[in-house]
Design a protein around this nucleic acid. Structure first.
Lengths: 156, 156
DNA sequence: AATGAAACTCGCGCGGC
DNA sequence: GCCGCGCGAGTTTCATT
C-alpha cells in the first residue's frame, strides 16, 4: 500500500460511486492500473465495502442517543453485546475500558421509541444492571471517514 | 418516496457500488426507471452521497474513544463544536441534553495520540471545563445504516 | 412514471513494455 | 506495476405508452 493507494482511497471516501475512469483521471493514471489497485485493496480487506450515506432526518431515525450500559458482575459480555448488535436501531456496540460497561449508539424515531427499546429489550436482559442515556440535541459532525495521511512512507 | 424507493435504498445501503442494472434486476424493473428514481432521491437530498467502508485496523486509527466534554458556564457552544468538528481524528460531535456537554467520538492511532489530542488541542480550548475519556477495548458493531421499514405507506 | 432501443461510456482482461 | 487496445457490459437519453 503506497501513496497512490491512499489517493484512491481518499477519492472513494468522498464519492464512492464515481466510475473507475474518473478516479483514473483525477490521479492521472490509466483506468486499468487503477482498477488493478482497487481490486487488490478489496482482496486485502482494506476496502470493506461501499455504502450509501442517507440523510437521517428524512427517515424515522432522527433521534440519536448514547447509552452507557453497566453490566452485572457475572455478565456474559460477548453474548450480551452480540444480542444488542442484532437490534436494527442500535448502530454501535463498544466494550469500554474500566467500567464493566458497554457504550451503545442508538438511532430511533423519538423518545417514546427509545423508551420502548430500553424497557422492553435492553433493561430486561439478565446481564444489564442499569443504563444511562445521553440524548443528542444536535449533531455538528457525524462521519465514518478515517483520516488518511497526506504522505505515506513505504514500510518494506 | 414509496416502497420501491425503500427497496432501492436497502440495496444501496449494503453494496453501493454495484451496477445499476443489477439493482434493476433485483427489484424487477428496467434500468432506466431505477436510474430515474436514484437521481430523484439524490436531488431530494435523501441520498447524501456514497462512501467506501475502510477496514480501520489497517490504518492508524484503530483506537476509538468517546470523550465527554463538559463546557464552561459561559461557553460558546456552536463555535466550540465547530472547532472540534474541524479536527480530522474527531469523527462525531454531538450536543448532549442536560449536562452542558458535548459527546465526541474520536479515532486515533494509540493512547499517546489521544493524549496529544487532549492536552494540545481539546483541553486548552477556553470553553472546555474538563473531559472524561471512555476508551474502547473492542467493538462488536459499528454501522451507519439507518433501519428502513419493510413496508412503507405513502403519505400524500 | 415505466419501457425498449439506440448511442455512448465504462469495466476489465490481455499482451507489451 | 503501468499502459493501450478491444469487446462485452453497463449507463444514459429519448421517444413511446
Amino acid at each position: 500500500m503506497d501513496h497512490i493507494d491512499f489517493k484512491i482511497l481518499k477519492i472513494l471516501q468522498t464519492k464512492a460511486r464515481i466510475p473507475n475512469v474518473e478516479v483514473a483521471r483525477e490521479i492521472g493514471m490509466a483506468p486499468s492500473a487503477v482498477l488493478e489497485r482497487i481490486k487488490k485493496l478489496e482482496a486485502q480487506g482494506v476496502i470493506d465495502g461501499y455504502e450509501v450515506r442517507l440523510n437521517p432526518d428524512q427517515f424515522e431515525g432522527s433521534l440519536i442517543a448514547f447509552l452507557h450500559v453497566t453490566l452485572t458482575r457475572n455478565a456474559r459480555i460477548k453474548e450480551t453485546a452480540m444480542a444488542l448488535a442484532d437490534m436494527a436501531s442500535i448502530q454501535e456496540v463498544h466494550y469500554i475500558a474500566g467500567e464493566d460497561g458497554l457504550m451503545l449508539k442508538v438511532r430511533v424515531a423519538d423518545t417514546s421509541a427509545l423508551e420502548t427499546l430500553l424497557t422492553t429489550r435492553i433493561n430486561p436482559m439478565p446481564s444489564v444492571a442499569r443504563t444511562k442515556s445521553s440524548i443528542v440535541l444536535s449533531t455538528f459532525k457525524e462521519t465514518a471517514k478515517i483520516p488518511l495521511p497526506e504522505t505515506y512512507h513505504t514500510t518494506p
